[in-house]
């Protein structure tokens, strides 16, 4: 079970008020998690990564196990703590003024 933590505004768009739990088979990567997340909550498509080129939006970051992995390859394997559900995959909006 993969746990995903979303920022406030995306929880509102998805009409949820807690973390998301996803069943994903195969390699657990950033792309695999985002594909599964967008499939379950289609209203989030385009809000985390661009609709067309799938690039992460500039002020969105991904954290796992206390590390910022936003710049890692999106198809790289994530740590086993994410696969086991011990640690969540955290999506957050960067502090960027405004």
């Amino acid at each position: 079970m993969i746990r995903v933590v979303l920022p406030y505004h995306l929880r509102n768009l998805a009409h949820i008020n807690s973390e998301v739990q996803l069943e994903i088979s195969g390699h657990i990567t950033i792309n695999a998690i985002l594909n599964s997340l967008e499939a379950r909550y289609p209203m989030l498509a385009g809000t985390i990564r661009d609709h067309v080129n799938k690039q992460r939006r500039p002020f969105v970051r991904y954290y796992v196990c206390g590390e910022d992995i936003s710049l890692e390859q999106p198809d790289a394997q994530l740590p086993p703590q994410i696969l086991s559900g011990k640690e969540p995959f955290v999506i957050l909006g960067a502090i960027a003024g405004g």
């Binding site: 009409h15 594909n35 967008e38 379950r40 909550y41 289609p42 209203m43 498509a45 609709h51």
Partner: peptide
Amino acid sequence: GFKPGDSTTTPDGMPVTESNK
């Protein structure tokens, strides 16, 4: 394309919402 709570996907599991595309 969605009512609150909807989670419609395509048969292969990909999101179908394109209202912000």
